[in-house]
Design a protein around this nucleic acid. Sequence first.
DNA 1: TCGGATCTGTCGTTTATCCGACAAAGGGAC
DNA 2: GTCCCTTTGTCGGATAAACGACAGATCCGA
Lengths: 185, 185
Amino acid sequence: MTSSKTDPRVLRTRKLIMDAFIELSGKKEFKDITVKDLTAEAMINRATFYYHFEDIYDLLEKALSEVLFVNLDSHWFKGKEPDEDSLVRIFTAITNFQTSLSNRCHRGYEDTIARIIREQLQVIFYQMLLTQKNTEEDAALNMTAVLLSWGIYGASVEWRRSAREVPPEDYIKLAIPYLMSGLKS
Amino acid sequence: MTSSKTDPRVLRTRKLIMDAFIELSGKKEFKDITVKDLTAEAMINRATFYYHFEDIYDLLEKALSEVLFVNLDSHWFKGKEPDEDSLVRIFTAITNFQTSLSNRCHRGYEDTIARIIREQLQVIFYQMLLTQKNTEEDAALNMTAVLLSWGIYGASVEWRRSAREVPPEDYIKLAIPYLMSGLKS
DNA sequence: TCGGATCTGTCGTTTATCCGACAAAGGGAC
DNA sequence: GTCCCTTTGTCGGATAAACGACAGATCCGA
């Protein structure tokens, strides 16, 4: 398909680094994690880290994207339309994701994390929209994806701010009818 | 000390293989584990396996030695005399080890496993005996270590055969007085 | 403000690992 | 028995990862 088969050593090393990052994130704050720490935990050489990532912020970005990607189970959404069911699943996935993140002390990087989540959502929404519209409206689809990603993300912020009194699926269902009527036009 | 520092890749790869072996041992019998299975689980190339081990029996041997070594906490015994406390600890360690092994379905390789355990015990007893005797009696010490390793191992076989009605520490304590009186001469 | 220490990125060289292919040996199914 | 398929070891050539050294950045206590 896409791939000219990436070297297994690369996949393995990336996984080792990611796992080490997750592990260390549980022990100390992001700002206190050094590349040396990471590579020691991952059992790889420091130079090898720079072979795969620009710096530790690049790692943060890619690691979060990957975790979020798995949480969102992107394959499941590919080819689906953005119906109520999909939106509920996406919303609960990212609220779960953020809840698990808040245990991990990434204070001071909320902005970065938020951006990563929105970018990931945007990609997924764009792919979903592609299945029901033709590609000539590309710019419009992209814009819609942007709006949806910000909207859903914002809803998750508000949900957390509301002290999580309502289950996320109930919370998002309130807004969905309005969204859906617009999307079908 | 000893080392001209083995390459970290070697240590990492060995660990990956060992872990994969432990993992697979829980799922299927030893005879059904292929090198291909192992290397897939370990995320390494099949050729790399043969770089580290002669074949899968070689792996069995080294993996068991390592697990047993950890169980026996060899560092703890180094420099100790073979007193009652040490013997009880060793005996309970290997009975624990074998109990955990019996969950892992290595049927058909009891002989190999038994040999590995005895060899490991022999090394440990020899080191312990060295601390109280001088090296001129080397052959005698070695012979004593052999006897002790077979004796303790045999006791563990009998203990398991007795349906484990008595706690291992009580079981071995029955025999120890006779051993000790002999050892001190 | 200075100095020591640690961390960061980068480089050229060496080495462990990957790949793909190979012959040989086993193990079912028929 | 004969096929077919999988596993086993082994090889030479390609490549990712390790090493150790380096200059510059950053931090922190004196």
